[in-house]
Nucleic acid binder design. Structure first.
Lengths: 111, 111
DNA sequence: ACCTTATATTACTATATCGGGATATAGTAT
DNA sequence: ATACTATATCCCGATATAGTAATATAAGGT
């Protein structure tokens, strides 16, 4: 018997949601910044150059989705990436985009 | 010297766009249906149960993004997936979601 | 108690985009 | 030429969501 590959609507919605989570440049920026090391909100605001309310909102979204964890220490709240597949996904996309451009470049005639 | 992992805004935007492409359940449904075999628009409309205008629009988006190819044959236009990394991405997300739920389930007490 | 700092939340605006009806266009058949 | 079919496109209402200013909340210091 073969592996079931049929995707029902609920599954499609869950998978799409994960991609939607990754579809915002600012969230990718936050995730990649957090990839280096755990950081608090103020550090992230400085590192990304974005507004504090915006960073907090994105962090809340990432937290709800379970890809980052929170750790409160005094006034500061430290965030850390807990889902490493995030980076795996970005790597796959990145390689694909690169080879796509390589191919297009090769299609052009020599000068 | 270490590999450069810094992502500029243009790169972030390109990567986010690819994820945005995958963030729509209907597009995922189309891609998985096309994963089985090449199909024309009418077949896709039947297979997905969606409206023709909607399917055409999504196919146009997928085509522009370079993940499907077009082949015109008489009145019909046949589409085919040309970017297999699409499925790799879905698989990564799917496994991750499964293990996430497995962990949450294990966290619950025995009855 | 009061002030300051760090973070989250609320309320709002602006923008993007999905779904779908109507229509245009291209190809085929008679 | 006319009629028909398959697909793409235009337009629009409905909805979602990013960014942001203002405000609330929570923790610490004086």
């Amino acid at each position: 018997m073969t592996k079931k590959r049929d995707l029902n609507d609920a599954a499609l919605e869950m998978i799409a949601s994960r991609f939607r989570l990754m579809s915002e440049p600012m969230r990718l920026k936050i995730l990649h910044t957090l990839g280096e090391r755990e950081m608090n909100v103020t550090e992230l605001v400085a590192a990304t150059g974005a507004n504090q309310a915006n960073i907090s909102k994105h962090l809340g979204i990432l937290y709800e989705a379970g890809v980052v964890s929170r750790r409160k220490e005094g006034l500061a709240v430290h965030y850390k990436v807990t889902d490493e597949t995030i980076f795996e996904l970005c790597d796959v996309v990145c390689s694909r985009l690169k080879s796509h451009f390589d191919l297009r470049r090769l299609a052009l005639p020599d000068v």
